[in-house]
Design a protein around this nucleic acid. Structure first.
Lengths: 254, 254
DNA sequence: CAGTGGTCTAGACCACATA
DNA sequence: ATGTGGTCTAGACCACTGA
């Protein structure tokens, strides 16, 4: 009696639904549809796992997989003994895709080029330490670049690299490869924090971008860690007219 | 022989690890650590499911749960017959938390208040339709608000609401509740697209924010749908000095 | 064609929160 | 005390795909 009894049932279901994917996917999207359509408002208790298992004629594990994913996605909240409930939507979260500059520029249909401006190695000043969130005076590589789209200044990059975290950067001139791509190739899988503000450019930025010092600019500060160790801080300054950050939000997964 | 043979093993593992959570969580974070530390570089093939199942002395399902989650998180890529491989990191993606203005202001330690300025009901003009991505001349509710932090102008809100999607909005004056919270309460679970730019404010914004027309401003445009139907478009204009958008990126889950 | 991941089962025990 | 979700098992079949 260890023969798979569920097999006939499974095939029956496949025949009935036919349309698409796996069962747990179907359960997931069914529930998701109920939530997104408003049919199940926030606070609504969705059926228990064993109920859904009965409805879909499957094992509880299959239902559990669907519900667990919905919980991770933040669509439902699960409470022991109480059940699973539709969440109130998170205020507004959005996934911001910050691709590399080359892709960005080429997506605008322009020809990408960058020039390295200054490159300087020194011990971290007070300002550098503040940028990197460091307390010690580690060796630092400071580099500035100008990124162009079809020969028009597109973005000014002002970066410090923590050489204690990335010693190999000391041997790189960043003439043929920009610091960003180089770092991704040499220090993959980092964590990052972005700060996005609107300001007037500092003098260096305005000069290199060839804009008036009063031109509003979008400034993206990115601080990157590797295993809680600061790796690099970079400030991208875009003339406000050049850049749009676009972020999409969907209740994910599906 | 249907008695759970795995029980002794399970308890053995609990005793061995003791530290924390579930087994699949531990497997997940073990692998994640190998990846984030660079010990397993992009392209590296991680052990097969059955290998890990042997190592951790558990069933393949448990390993599968961990690996599936890593795959969803984008840390590994799974290919049938070939195995699972460490991904190259996605360029840079970040989760931007756009909370509501009340929370935002209060997080700055200020007292939140908002005033509704204009409220007007009319048929969608060409401009309105462009904002909402609509082709038909539906009824529209246009509303502007000023949000203040400790009586200082913090953000100017210029919004249009598609009354065809949210008829109930027609009965709301938005004097006691701001349009944002009202919409979240009445139209939960929407999809949204955000556009973030830096510009000089338009005349109305500058006037209400009491800033010079040359002050750089962070402008957040948000278009919201419900089931592919445009619900609302809103433009938030912040004096550049007032606002920082902060986005964090981690290789998620764990 | 052989072996991987993808999926599913029919149980089980447990922690835990709630009624 | 009871019943929920959380976790896990020891199998199984299948689809796909790369060697």
């Amino acid at each position: 009696m260890t023969t798979p009894l569920g097999r006939e049932r499974k095939h029956l279901q496949r025949a009935l639904t036919a349309t698409d994917a796996s069962l747990h996917t179907r359960i997931l999207s069914d529930i998701k549809r109920h939530i997104l359509s408003g049919h199940w408002p926030p606070g609504h208790r969705i059926p228990f796992e064993h109920e859904l298992a009965t409805v879909y004629e499957c094992s509880r594990m299959t239902v559990n997989k669907a519900l667990s994913e919905l919980a991770r996605a933040g669509l439902i909240e699960r409470r022991r003994k109480a059940g699973s409930f539709v969440c109130r939507p998170r205020s507004q979260a959005a996934v911001l895709e910050i691709s590399d500059l080359k892709t960005e520029v080429e997506d605008l249909g322009r020809v990408y080029r960058f020039t390295r401006l200054a490159l300087r190695r020194h011990t971290a000043t007070e300002a550098d330490r503040r940028r990197l969130g460091l307390s010690k005076a580690v060796p630092i590589l400071a580099v500035t670049c100008l990124h162009l789209g079809s020969e028009t200044p597109y973005c000014f990059e002002d970066r410090v690299i923590n050489l204690a975290a990335v010693p190999a950067a000391d041997d790189e001139a960043f003439l043929w490869i920009a610091p960003g791509p180089w770092l991704i190739a040499h220090v993959p899988w980092t964590e990052a924090e972005h700060r996005i503000t609107a300001t007037t450019p500092d003098l260096a930025s305005a000069q290199h971008l060839a804009i008036m010092p009063s031109t509003p600019c979008l400034v993206v500060d990115r601080l990157t860690w590797r295993e809680r160790q600061p790796v690099t801080h970079v400030r991208f300054t875009y003339p406000g007219s050049a850049r749009e950050l676009i972020a999409r939000f969907e209740p994910s997964s599906g």
